[in-house]
Structure formats: C-alpha cells, structure tokens
C-alpha cells in the first residue's frame, strides 16, 4: 500500500505519481488531503488497482478509466466517470454535474444528490453495460440522449415535496433503462420515454445492485425495496427517424 499526501500538490504531479506507482506494480493507493485535484484515475488501465481518496477530488475523476476501483470519502465534483470504460467508483457524498457522460462500462455509485446533465449519452455494447446509481435526487437532463446502460435514481432522504429530478428527464433517450424509486412528476418526462412498472427481469438486474448499494452505504435493503419503483424506457430506438425527407 502506498499513501500519498496530496495537500498542495498540483494535479499533474499527483497523477504522475499515481501512474508511476501503478506502473511499478503497486495496487493499493490511499490519497490523503485531496482538495480539488482533477483527473484522478483518468485514463488509468488496470483491473487490480484500488484507490481510496480522502477529501474532495476535482473534475473528471476516473475519466476514460478502464478497470480500477475508486472510493471517495467525501463529495465529488463534475464529470466523474466521463467516458469511462470499466471499473467502479463509489462516492460517499454528493457529486456535481455531467456524471457518466458517454460512459460505456463499469459502475458509479453516489450516496447523495447529483447535479445537472447526469448520464447523458451513456451507451452499451454487448456485455459492456454501464451502471450509474444515485442515492439522492438529480437535476435536469437526467439521462438525456441516453443510448444504453442503466441509470438508477433512489431519491433517498428527500425533503418532503422535493421533486425526484429536474426537467427533461430522458429527453432524446434511445437506448438503456432508467430506474426510479418513486414517481417522477409527469411534466419532467422527456417526450421520447415511456414509464412502466418493473418486471422480473428488471428485479433480477436491480436486486444485486441494490444490495451492493446498501453494502457501501450501510442501508437496509428491505426498506429500500419497500418503495414503489418505476422504469423509463425509450419509445423508439430511432427517435429521430422521421426528421428527414428521403
């Protein structure tokens, strides 16, 4: 195990140190006093590496990442898991905007609320199915242009009367599934999605993920499941097929 004190270290040096350590064969890294350093884990490729972050990592955490597992003891900022390929990121707090943009594999768990434009253009290919799971609420444009993968929004610990998501939920969605614990307000739904109840296939997929979520954040899976779940799926895989004159 290697501990790095990130206090006052520029991101470029910090990330260089991380990459060199990983190249030298180290697999367990602990970063202390992280305070806004960007690009931690960006472009990192390894299935063995585990990074624990104490503090608040900066934007583009785990961008283009392929394989590693990152745990953040704190909040995260924007762009977590941007175009991520595989691996796991677990954030013990909230996170900012544009999480999981173009994400194509791996898992991202956020304990609390998230900002705008989360899960835009997530996609999937064969067995690469990305999962982005949010414990709290989400801002507008959740799952916009979604082309694949699974977005799960639990809406836990929500003040009474506060909406699950902002507007434009699933606008332009043409693949994948959004699971919602609770009922979104009708006016927030994008035109390209339809809401359904969950079937066995959904539960078979969702159950292990809910258990995983509860393990990370120490919650009771039974109580989590007790609420009403709905799913959003795209009306068409080709939402824009009729835009053109042949």
């Amino acid at each position: 195990m290697l501990r790095i004190d990130a206090a006052g270290v520029h991101y470029r040096h910090l990330n260089e140190q991380i990459r060199e350590t990983v190249r030298a064969g180290e697999t367990v890294l602990v970063l202390d006093n992280v305070n806004g350093q960007r690009y931690i884990g960006t472009g990192l490729e390894s299935d063995q590496v585990r990074i624990t972050i104490h503090g608040v990592p900066g934007n583009d955490l785990a961008a283009f990442m392929s394989g590693p597992a990152i745990t953040v003891w704190g909040n995260a900022q924007d762009g977590v898991s941007n175009t991520m390929n595989s691996g796991t990121v677990v954030v013990h707090g909230g996170a900012g905007d544009v999480l999981g943009y173009g994400m194509r594999g791996g898992k991202l768990f956020i304990r609390g609320d998230v900002g705008y434009r989360v899960g835009i253009h997530m996609k999937e290919y064969k067995d690469l199915v990305p999962v982005l799971m949010v414990g709290g609420r989400a801002g507008a444009f959740f799952g916009e242009y979604m082309a694949g993968g699974r977005l799960i929004l639990l809406g836990l610990d929500r003040p009474a009367g506060s909406p699950l998501t902002g507007d434009y939920l699933g606008t332009g969605m043409h693949g994948g599934v959004i699971y919602l614990r609770g009922r979104p307000e009708e006016h927030t739904l994008g035109r390209e999605v339809k809401m359904f109840d969950l079937d066995e296939v959904d539960w078979a997929f969702l159950n292990p993920l809910l258990d995983e979520f509860c393990r990370y954040y120490d919650r009771d899976p039974g109580r989590l499941r007790a609420a009403e779940f709905r799913k959003l799926v795209p009306v068409s895989h080709r939402p824009y097929g009729l835009l053109y004159t042949p």
Binding site: R38, T42, A63, H121, Y125, Y145, G148, H237, G241
Partner: peptide, 28 residues
C-alpha cells in the same frame, strides 16, 4: 453500439459549455 441503432452525436459535447470546459477536456 448495438447493430442497427442510430448513432446520434449531440450538437454540443454536454461536458463542454465554455472555454474552461473545453480546457478541462483537453487536459483530460
């Protein structure tokens, strides 16, 4: 992406709404 599905590229990159955001992707 799956066979037969439309490949849509949104008009903007939704992680780039400013020069600062562009800079962020450049350095990523």
């Amino acid at each position: 992406i799956p066979v037969g599905s439309d490949a849509l590229s949104p008009a903007p990159h939704h992680d780039i709404y400013s020069i600062e955001d562009l800079s962020q992707l450049i350095f990523a």
